[in-house]
Structure formats: C-alpha cells, structure tokens
Design a protein around this nucleic acid. Sequence first.
DNA 1: ACTTCTATATATCGACCGCTAAATAAAGTG
DNA 2: CACTTTATTTAGCGGTCGATATATAGAAGT
Lengths: 200, 200
Amino acid sequence: MNAKTRQRRPAFDREAGVAIAQALFHERGYDAVSLADLTQAMDIKPPSFYAAYGSKAALFERAMLRYAQENALPLDELLAPDRPPAEALPALLLAAAEQYGRDSVLRGCMITEGMRADDPAARRMAESLASGGLQAIRAYLDQVHPQDAESLADYVSVTLRGLSASACHGMPYERLTQVARTAGLLIAHELEADEPTTAS
Amino acid sequence: MNAKTRQRRPAFDREAGVAIAQALFHERGYDAVSLADLTQAMDIKPPSFYAAYGSKAALFERAMLRYAQENALPLDELLAPDRPPAEALPALLLAAAEQYGRDSVLRGCMITEGMRADDPAARRMAESLASGGLQAIRAYLDQVHPQDAESLADYVSVTLRGLSASACHGMPYERLTQVARTAGLLIAHELEADEPTTAS
DNA sequence: ACTTCTATATATCGACCGCTAAATAAAGTG
DNA sequence: CACTTTATTTAGCGGTCGATATATAGAAGT
C-alpha cells in the first residue's frame, strides 16, 4: 500500500509548552501571537494544543501566572512596612526598570502590557493579575504615608507603565534605569523635604 | 421587470470620513478597527473606501495627521527657549494629562498609542509622527539645561507614555492631572535646588 | 496478547481579515 | 440629447483567525 502509516510522536511536555508560550506572548503580546505561531513553536498540532490548554486565552493566563511566579518583583521586601518610602519607592522603580530592560527580546512587563490586549478576556486576566501589585503599593503607602497615598500610588503606577511601554519600544537598559533613578531621586527629595521628622 | 434598479447615493464626504476614522482609531487602536467597522461607520462600501483612501494604513496616517493638527500640544509655546525648564516641563506634563483625559471616550495620545500597533507600517507612521515631538523636547533641553538633557528628556518621555497608557486604561481626569502636577512639582523642586543661579 | 483509554494526526470548519474585479448609476461635457 | 468619466454597487477573492470532528497510534491495565 502507499499508506505512509501516519507517525505519532510521544506526548509533549505541557509545562515546557507554557514556557514557550510565555516567551512568545511576552515578546509580541497576546493578539500578535497566533495559534499557528504557538503550535509551530511547540511542535504540536492544534488538537493537541486544545486538549492540553483549552484555549489560547487559557494558555495566556497560565503563561502570565508562570511569568508572575518567575519574575514578580519582591514587593513584600521592597515595600516592607518598616522601610521609609523615600527609600522603598526608588528601590521599587529601579528594580522594575532593571527587569523591564534586562532581556533584549523579552522587554517590559508581560502583565502590564497584557492589559492592553484587544481580546477582552485576555485583558481582564492581565488586569486581575496586575491589581494585586497595585494594591500592595497602595496598602504600603496607606500605612507609611497616608496623607497622599493615592497621589503617590498613582505617580508610581504611571511611572511603571511608562517604563514598561518605553522598554517595549526599545529604550536601552541604561536609559531605562536612569529614568527610574531620576524618578526615585525626585520622590526621595520631596519626601525628605516634606517630613524630615523621622528623628527627634 | 423584477429589477430593483440598484440605488446609488451621491459621493460621500472624504474629509468627514477621515474624521470618523480618526475617532475610531483613537478609541480602539489601529488593529482593533476593521475595514467593516470603518465602512459601516462611514456608510460606504469597501470599493468606495479604497478608491478614496487607498488602504487602511493610508487612512490611519491621514487620521493621525488630522489628530496632530487638531490636538497637538503647542510645544513651541510650552517649550519657548526663554522659559525656564522648572516652569516649562510641568506645564507640558499638565497640558498632556489634561488632553489625554479630557474626552471620556477618546483617551490617551492617539500617536503614542499608535506606536504600539501590531501592523509594522502603522507603527512606523506613528513613530515618525511622534519623533517630532520628542525631538522638540530634546532640542529645548539641549538649549536650556544641557548638563542632563537626555536624562530629563527620557524622564519626560516615560512620564508622557505612562500618562497616555493610564488614560487609555481609564484613570480619571482628576487623578491623571494630579499625577502630572506631582511629576511637575518634583522636577521643578529638583531643578530649582540644583541651580538657583539664574540671577547674579 | 487483547482491550481500553488517552493523546495525537489529518483535514477541515465557519467567521472574519484586508482588498478587488466587474457591472452600473450619477455627474460632467459637447 | 449622446457620450465619457467617475464613483458607487454587488459579489467575492485568497488568506488567516481560533477552534474541532473524525480517525488512529501509542500507553496502560488485565
């Protein structure tokens, strides 16, 4: 017979697939990565993909969770309640800039950028994951600087978004971290000028 | 005859079509607006669309140019060479925040967000338009504060990107402008502390 | 070895994408 | 009026999107 006896490869590594998807989604964003891109990168066929992950959006969520576990900033250390904000906030901004610009191909924050997906489901997943970090910043500031916690939290949030977007757009590591240092210095000087009443 | 004698409406207003496209692209971004969305909003058929504008990307460019002419910040006034940076930069940030958050549906900067399109041609058009504004900021700072013009320009650029992204994500007008005021204050204090040597 | 279950491969599906060829109605010109 | 030009119409192109129905190969249980 001319039958070429269809070949079947052993089961693929699902966790490795999540890692591959994480890299693709991080590099190009949710909308710009197609099923064909994913299945080709994982070297599997669409039915295997859907049997393993359910849908593109579900895999995106798993990829973001993996990203968060691997790359989340140590907010509980950076924003320890006994740390003065003039020290903690600059450290947070610098740590973020370093991470956003470290890898020349996986740039910016995967979750922050995920919130900009055109697909509503993917966007909501990213927003849900991001809200945790923002709440941590807000809770820290409510504790250590309640007089304008919202204003400071918003400033930090906007700066983080700007750093992520600039990283994605290609701003080099040195300039990204320099911006973070500048923003941190400005915050620190302002906070120290407002209330040097920590001693006495 | 059963001929329902196909009806034809008079030629449509091409400039009005650009305005409609501008609003759609600004609200949803280049990739999320389809040809069907555009032709339906303009109440024309695809061939009329292509006869008038050539392609979706070409219309996007016309829409961005129209946006720039209508909404561009008056950089030559805001960044007048005789204006001290401690006054000009906060004014620039506040003017941007006010514009980005003014309209509840057309949020953020259409050009800044256009640079994030998945389509490479659209992205390059937006980048080309955006580079003018960035160069103006850089040229101003080279003139009035050459010692760290790049660092300051990068800081302003990152903050503007963060403001635009936050506006698109829904941050209310009051909080956007408050962030701009905060960032402006920080810059002003730092600049005035560094060099009060304007007199003598 | 034989059956059962699971995960893979082939081959699409329907919807939508940006875009266009061919036919036809209105407007311009004598 | 007759003729040409221009812009609109209907209809559909080739392609890609995310996702699937069906058939079959390997792994597991006995």
